[in-house]
Simulated assay, not measured.
Amino acid sequence: MISQIFIQCSIICFFNTATALVYNALAIVTPAPWILAFGQICWACNHACPAIIYVTMNDTIRREFYRLVFRIKKVEDSSTAVKSTTQSKI
């Protein structure tokens, strides 16, 4: 559990840090074209990574994502159903 959280944070922070370094370097020098391309790729990944990481690595978010996308209805607990019908009769 802790290792998954560490991996998730590390991936997100890597792209965020790489993007910041490239764009800060732009203020000082004109970097090589491959560095600019790397910065653009990191910028795109920086915005896409959290969603992809959470859907692939986080069990709760993945479960809710599947329910939302595939229109899976929650199975109501039988004890909850009994309580709600009992309360509605009162």
Rank of each mutant, 00 (worst) to 15 (best):
M1I: 15
I2R: 11
I2Y: 14
S3L: 14
S3D: 13
Q4L: 15
I5H: 02
I5A: 02
F6D: 10
F6V: 15
F6I: 15
F6G: 11
I7F: 13
I7W: 05
Q8L: 09
Q8R: 09
Q8I: 08
S10N: 03
N16H: 08
T17V: 09
T17N: 05
T19M: 12
L21K: 01
V22W: 03
Y23Q: 03
N24M: 11
L26S: 01
L26Q: 02
L26C: 03
L26T: 00
A27Y: 02
A27F: 02
I28S: 04
I28D: 07
V29G: 00
T30P: 02
T30G: 00
T30W: 00
A32R: 02
A32K: 01
P33Y: 01
W34D: 04
W34M: 07
I35S: 02
A37K: 06
A37C: 11
G39N: 01
G39T: 00
Q40Y: 06
I41W: 11
I41R: 06
I41C: 06
I41E: 04
C42G: 15
A44Q: 07
A44W: 04
C45F: 15
H47W: 13
A48D: 04
A48M: 10
A48E: 03
C49G: 12
C49F: 15
P50W: 03
P50K: 07
P50A: 04
I52T: 04
I53E: 02
V55N: 09
V55A: 09
V55R: 11
T56I: 14
T56D: 07
M57I: 07
M57P: 06
N58I: 04
N58D: 11
D59F: 05
D59S: 07
I61L: 09
I61F: 09
R62C: 15
R62V: 11
R63Y: 07
R63W: 01
R63K: 10
F65K: 07
F65Y: 13
V69S: 05
V69D: 01
V69E: 03
F70I: 08
R71L: 14
R71A: 15
I72P: 01
K73G: 00
K73M: 08
K74F: 00
K74G: 00
K74S: 01
V75L: 03
V75Y: 00
V75E: 11
E76F: 09
E76T: 11
E76K: 15
D77M: 11
D77C: 09
D77L: 14
D77T: 08
S78W: 10
S78C: 11
S78R: 12
T80F: 12
A81S: 12
V82R: 07
V82C: 08
V82E: 13
K83E: 13
S84Q: 15
S84N: 15
T85G: 01
T86K: 13
T86M: 13
Q87C: 08
Q87N: 12
S88T: 06
K89H: 06
I90Q: 10
